[in-house]
């Protein structure tokens, strides 16, 4: 299922303002790549380029290429790209007018799947994967506002997983959650990497160190350094990495 994602010389713009400068990196399959860096470093813009969400903002554009399994994502229909590259956002954003079940089923229905048993099967599987099933199996047809924020975020993960993407992007998924819910998401990321290529944006360095197989540091729109967390956190090659990690800026 998971496939590695290769980014070549990616630059991104909002109007005349350049946000990202020639970023090249590889996010290997079945591994967790964490993206760290201060606010405004371009982390979110970077991941939004991976599922071609960046270009839906007025005046936004990008240069460079993103490859998934030897396919240039920018030569595909963006709708197809987003079904291969799933995304979970900073704040939980379940569809407020839909039930728990219908939230998870939304992507399947968009894919034209009408068979009820296939849909319920896939909904259950996705909720199992996001370890939410036991908590919601008796309230599948209840409105989503009865869930806690942590549950809502795991629901959004289930919603993204239901259409079986190859890559799962999580953009600071725990930043608006309490510590316990945050830890649950982290555990979930560990479990999911056997199935998916995972890209996790976080500003929590401990979290990045714990779950990552590969870590990349972004500063002012540039990829400063990447490597295994052990390397990057203990023996940074770049002076700026060291400054950031020791809290001299950011």
């Amino acid at each position: 299922m998971g496939k590695s994602l290769v980014v070549e010389s990616l630059s991104a713009f909002y109007g005349k303002q350049q946000i990202l400068y020639h970023v090249s990196m590889t996010m290997p399959e079945h591994q967790v790549t964490t993206i760290i860096g201060p606010s405004g470093a371009g982390k979110s813009t970077f991941v939004r380029c991976l599922n071609r969400l960046h270009e839906t903002t007025p005046n936004a554009r990008m240069e460079g290429s993103v490859w998934l399994d030897h396919q240039n994502l920018y030569e595909l229909d963006p709708i197809i790209v987003r079904r291969k590259v799933g995304m979970v956002f900073q704040a939980p954003n379940p569809f407020p007018t839909r039930t728990v079940f219908e939230n998870v089923a939304a992507g399947l229905r968009l894919n034209g799947i009408r068979n009820k048993s296939i849909i319920s099967e896939q909904v259950e599987k996705s909720l199992q994967l996001s370890s939410l099933w036991d908590e919601v199996k008796n309230s599948l047809h209840q409105p989503v506002w009865n869930l806690t924020r942590g549950q809502q975020q795991r629901l959004c993960i289930a919603r993204a997983l239901a259409i079986e993407p190859s890559v799962l992007i999580l953009d600071e998924p725990a930043s608006t959650l309490d510590p316990l819910s945050s830890l649950k998401i982290e555990e979930l990321v560990e479990e999911l990497k056997s199935h998916y290529t995972i890209v996790l944006v976080t500003h929590n360095l401990q979290q990045a160190a714990r779950v990552a197989d590969l870590t990349a540091l972004f500063l002012d729109g540039e990829l400063v350094e990447q490597g295994s967390p052990a390397e990057l956190f203990t023996r940074p090659k770049d002076k700026r990495t060291e400054d950031y990690l020791t809290g001299r800026f950011g």
């Binding site: 599922n51 969400l53 839906t56 709708i79 197809i80 987003r82 079904r83 799933g86 995304m87 956002f89 900073q90 704040a91 954003n93 379940p94 569809f95 407020p96 939304a106 992507g107 968009l110 894919n111 959004c156 919603r159 993204a160 259409i163």
Partner: peptide
């Protein structure tokens, strides 16, 4: 973010 949620699912 709700609209992005739908687009990210391939809507």
């Amino acid at each position: 973010d709700l609209q992005d949620g739908a687009i990210a699912l391939g809507a």
